[in-house]
Each structure stands twice: as structure tokens, then as C-alpha cells.
Design a protein around this nucleic acid. Structure first.
Length: 555
RNA sequence: GCGCCUGUAGCUCAGUGGACAGAGCAUCGGUCUUCGGAACCGAGGGUCGGGGGUUCGAAUCCCUCCAGGCGUACCA
């Protein structure tokens, strides 16, 4: 079972000390204060709190004095060495180095569970991602969506959320109609017709392949059928094949969804009309210009939006309202949607609709990510979904492998319009951080293997022998993994994993340089260091695993 | 026009209002009779887009201007 991280522990000590200081009248009574603990500059301490600085004004005391009062009120802790007040009013915490050394055992005891934390408290959370229109193969842009979503999902699981991964299948609407019409044209062309792909159709070559696959299933039967029936069949068969292809692309990225939820199903179930009726009951619907509108102008939005077109068809927006309502109906207490930034204008509408239905819009978090540019041979690749001129997930994974694909797609903040450099991702050189990190892991494996050959086998281990600065620096970072998981889960910032992994690998390499692990002349120290290497291997592997990357023993 | 995102070292990017702004790559200079050199050490390199403001303290918050991306559909 995971236990309290050092940071959480220190936070608890501070809260306790605040209570004590107030009881002893060293501090005036205070309203509840949220206590934050951060990482101190390494040369000063391990952890630090700015609590005294923030309290100074409220208690009408100089910050240094507040800090000293709090330090005096702090209970003793086996975690900690020196604790001190530092100008202008920080409270600095140094970890006890023997305690730190013994965390090697704690990490080994927790094994693959090391890194877990409990900020989720077992809450049911749904994360919806991917959800690209099934009108073509997944592009690298969708790849970013999927890798972000899946990485976040892995971290949320580690943070003790009950996570469901869902892909929303947008299988109705004008884009699917265009898809079916394009497929029909390609199908007719197979049978010698000279019809053209519709001007707004999908010109990519994959539509030709799709037509061939459908043709193998149905032969020329659709040529005689009425056009509406042919289109219906092609819609259905094309969609099924497209979804197979998308599922396969996800599998290439190591991603599996728990649920594929169909928009058509929502409509067939009457959920879309029910949602519109519910909005109408609440006085949020207007009929105007032959269409049905969601009225949000006066509250959340700058304009109203159409729910039902004058043709009688519900819009994507109407379906999305029903969809989010249905998400909450299923008992998820938190929802995350991962959307491309080109959908950001949709955010206030969906939130407004949730509020209008009586939900708390805060339950929904929308993680927006900026678009992806691709660099090949140093030049930007132009992309267009319409012409089929896209860089697909499949070709990127074929070209650079799943590990590098995932690493590069997750390593940038979602807010950054990232550039995916195919040549760099493919490079097996020191320019490529993927190999740097995995190499550190392979090195741990190699050392452990070597130790067996050299006969420095298991035996009594005295972890207190771990005192070298390089050993302790490595350990300090290792024990932060649960804190990182907590931060990533709360901030929805999976890119931080990549930076952590890089830093961890660097500290391991530095340790390797400074500390000879296998030394037949000092078996006791060798054993302690082997335990540290073993623990480092676990932490590196866990971190890579959270990113969906492999942790190879050999490269 | 309005809205969202972005602007930090030559390049790609980190940086929950805190302690002198960081990393990788690139450049230059070092380390090696190696527990796998896909490694390590060091150096140079910054008006944190500009200007105001709030604060004990601003890359971070507010205002404004400039630049780029994306939205602003009875598409999704």
C-alpha cells in the first residue's frame, strides 16, 4: 500500500504546527489556511514552505518571526533532518539522510505500486479522448490527443481514480454523409463508372482501399440498389471498417478504450430529443428562423446556438449535450474531455448546457491541446484532411516506433503548438531523449545481471551505507514520483512525466559515474548499492510505464 | 472586430506569486586500461515580446500595445 509522500507528510506537520502555535497564543487565531509545500533550491534544502510569508500580513508579524514560531511548533519527524527559517521567511526542510537511504527498502517493498498516491480517493472518473471523426485514418494530431488522454488516464489510475476511457464515435452528420458519398463514388469507379468524387469529398487514397474492401463483401449488389440504400450500406460498412482501422491505430500506440460510444445510438435511444425537451422545460429553448435554438445569450455565451436544424436534424451540439448528460447519468463524478484547440469555441456552450440541465459544470474539465506540425527532412509537411494529405499515426509509428511516438507527443505542454520532428524521433543518437532515458534503465538491468555473474549475491544489506551525494541526490528524486503523480493528476499536465524521466536518468548516470556498484573488496557497500540500483530500475520503469513506453533491459 | 492559446538562451522547450531564470540539443573545451561511451564534466550564450500597474516579492496576476496560431457555421 502506498504511504504518505514526504511532501504530504511535511504539509501535515505544518498544519499541526499552526494549530499548536495558535493554541499557545504564539500566533493569533486564523481562518483556515491552505498550506503549500514546494521544492527548495537544492543547495538550501529539500522542501520549503512559504507559509510564513503568506501569513505575515494576516498575523501582523514579520515573516521571519512567523517562520520561527512555526518551526518551534513543528513536531519531531523521522523524515526530517534540519528544519530552519530562512530569509525572507521561508521554512526549509532537509530530509534525514538515513531515513532517505532506507526509502530504498520502501520502494522495493511497494514494487510496481511505487508512485501511487490517493488524491483520487477511488472516485469514478471518465476521460473521453480520441473521438476523431471516423472518416479517415488517425492523423498525428489525433495521435497527440490519444497519447495525452491515455497518459493522463494512466496517471489518474495511479492516483486512485477509477478511470474509464471512452471514444465518442461521431457516426452521424454531414461529414459522415460526405464519407458515404465519397465511398459510393469510389465503389462505382471500381465497376468502371467514371463518376467523380464529390467536390467536398475525401480525396485520400484510403477511400479507394476502403471501397475495395466493401466490394469484396458485397460485390456489385449495390449498383442495382436504389441510391439511398446503397449509401446506407456504404455508410454502415465503411464506418465499421474505418473503426477497425482506428482501433488498430490505437493499439499501435498501446491504447485500449473501455467504451466506444456512438452518437447514432444516443439519437436512436431518444436521448437527444430528451435532452432538448429537458432544456425546453427549463425555458432555455427558442424556435426561430425555422430552427430550434439553445438560449444562452443572456448568461454564459455571446450568442445562441442551434439544436435542431430547419431540416429537422439535430446538430452535433445537441447530441453533445445529451452525451455529457449521459456521462453524468452513468455516475462519473469527474469528466475530462480532450479536445483539439480548434474546438475551443465549443467549451462555453457545453458548460452552459450542463448548467442549464442542473449539473455543476465544474465536474467537466476540458483539456485543450494545440495542433501538431510535422517536420520531415527539416521541412514542414503540409497537411489537409480533405485531400488525404496527412501524416498518420500509423506511418509515424512505423517510422519511429511506439516509444518515440508517445514520448514526443506527450513531452510538450498541451498548450504548446508542438513540432514533431520525424528525423529526431528516429535518430538513435544522443540527440534523442528517448534513448537516453531507456538507456539508463538498460544500464540498471545490466548492472544487476553483472552482479549475479560476479557473485555479489543477496545477503544482509545495510542501507545506511548509502551516503554518497550522488546516491542521495538520486534517491531524493526517486521518492518524488508519488508527488509527481499527484501533481500531474491534479494539473492535467502529463508532459511533466517526460521531464522527470529525463532528470531521473541524468541522476542515475551521474551516480553510475561517481559510485562503483560492484566492488568485490567492499561487499557490504556493493549490496546496498545494488538495492539502490534495483529501486532505481523500478522507478524508471514505472515512469516509462506511465508514459506507455517500454523499459528495455537491453538495447 | 470579438474570444482562446502562444511569445523565455542559436534551436526545441520546462518553469503551482517566492530565494541568483532552468533543461535538452547545437557550439567550444575536457574525461575513457568502461559494473554497456546511446555516458560523464566544464564553458560561453537571456532587455523572460514592448510598456505600465498590483505585491514585501512578478516569467507567473491585472491593463495596454506588438507578433504568431486557432476559433468566431442550421460542419464536427
Amino acid at each position: 500500500m502506498s504511504r504518505e509522500s514526504a511532501r504530504t507528510h511535511i504539509r501535515g506537520l505544518l498544519v499541526h504546527a499552526l494549530g499548536v502555535a495558535q493554541k499557545q497564543n504564539k500566533l493569533p487565531p486564523l481562518a483556515s489556511t491552505d498550506v503549500t509545500v514546494e521544492y527548495a533550491p537544492p543547495e538550501k534544502a529539500d522542501y520549503a514552505s512559504n507559509l510564513a510569508l503568506r501569513l505575515s500580513r494576516a498575523v501582523r508579524m514579520p515573516p521571519m518571526q512567523v517562520a520561527e514560531v512555526i518551526v518551534a511548533a513543528l513536531p519531531k519527524s523521522p523524515y526530517l533532518g534540519e528544519v530552519s527559517a530562512a530569509p525572507p521567511g521561508f521554512i526549509n526542510f532537509k530530509l534525514d539522510e538515513n531515513w532517505l537511504a532506507r526509502q530504498v527498502q520502501d520502494i522495493l517493498d511497494q514494487g510496481e505500486a511505487f508512485g501511487n498516491c490517493d488524491v483520487g480517493g477511488g472516485a469514478a472518473l471518465q476521460i473521453e479522448f480520441g473521438s476523431a471523426n471516423p472518416t479517415g485514418p488517425l492523423t498525428i494530431g489525433s495521435g497527440r490527443n490519444i497519447v495525452l488522454g491515455d497518459t493522463l488516464a494512466r496517471v489518474l489510475e495511479a492516483a486512485n481514480y477509477r478511470v474509464q476511457r471512452e471514444y465518442y464515435v461521431n457516426d452521424v452528420g454531414s461529414q459522415m454523409d460526405t464519407f458515404a458519398r465519397t465511398l459510393f463514388a469510389r465503389y462505382q469507379q471500381l465497376h468502371g463508372s467514371d463518376v467523380h468524387v464529390p467536390p467536398d469529398g475525401y480525396a485520400g487514397a484510403y477511400m479507394v482501399e476502403l471501397a475495395e474492401q466493401v466490394n469484396q463483401e458485397v460485390g456489385d449488389a449495390l449498383l442495382q440498389a436504389p441510391e439511398s440504400e446503397a449509401l446506407r450500406t456504404l455508410h454502415e460498412r465503411g464506418l465499421a471498417l474505418m473503426l477497425d482501422s482506428i482501433r488498430a491505430d490505437c493499439a499501435l500506440l498501446g491504447v485500449e478504450f473501455d467504451e466506444w460510444l456512438s452518437q447514432a445510438w444516443l439519437e436512436d435511444e431518444g436521448r437527444v430529443h430528451a435532452a432538448i425537451a429537458a432544456l425546453r422545460d427549463r425555458g432555455r429553448v427558442a424556435e426561430r428562423e425555422g430552427a430550434t435554438w439553445f438560449v444562452s445569450t443572456d448568461v454564459e455565451e455571446d450568442k445562441d446556438n442551434v439544436l435542431v436544424r430547419s431540416t429537422g436534424d439535430p446538430t452535433y451540439f445537441a447530441a453533445d449535450i445529451a452525451y455529457h448528460d449521459y456521462k453524468l447519468e452513468r455516475g462519473f463524478t469527474s469528466l475530462i474531455d480532450v479536445w483539439g484547440a480548434d474546438h475551443h469555441g465549443h467549451v462555453p456552450r457545453v458548460k452552459a448546457s450542463l448548467a442549464a440541465l442542473g449539473h455543476d459544470p465544474e465536474q467537466l474539465t476540458i483539456l485543450l491541446y494545440q495542433l501538431v506540425r510535422v517536420l520531415r527532412g527539416g521541412a514542414e509537411v503540409r497537411m489537409s484532411k480533405r485531400t488525404g494529405d496527412v501524416v498518420t499515426v500509423r506511418e509515424v509509428v512505423d517510422e519511429v516506433g511506439v516509444d518515440a511516438s508517445r514520448y514526443f507527443l506527450v513531452a510538450r505542454s498541451p498548450d504548446t503548438a508542438m513540432t514533431f520532428d520525424l528525423d529526431l524521433a528516429q535518430a538513435q543518437s544522443d540527440e534523442n531523449p528517448v534513448y537516453y532515458i531507456q538507456y539508463a534503465h538498460a544500464r540498471t538491468a545490466s548492472i544487476l545481471e553483472r552482479a549475479q555473474q560476479d557473485g555479489v549475491g543477496p545477503g544482509d544489506t545495510d542501507l545506511d551505507l548509502l551516503q554518497h551525494p550522488a546516491e542521495l541526490a538520486l534517491l531524493r528524486l526517486m521518492i518524488r514520483l508519488p508527488e509527481l503523480v499527484e501533481d500531474v493528476a491534479l494539473q492535467h499536465a502529463p508532459h511533466r512525466l517526460a521531464f522527470y524521466a529525463q532528470e531521473l536518468a541524468a541522476l542515475f548516470h551521474a551516480f553510475y559515474r561517481d559510485c562503483r556498484v560492484i566492488d568485490p573488496d567492499n561487499v557490504a557497500l556493493s549490496r546496498a548499492r545494488l538495492e539502490l540500483v534495483h529501486a532505481a530500475k523500478l522507478v524508471l520503469a514505472r515512469c516509462l510505464g506511465l508514459m506507455g513506453m517500454s523499459a528495455p533491459d537491453h538495447m
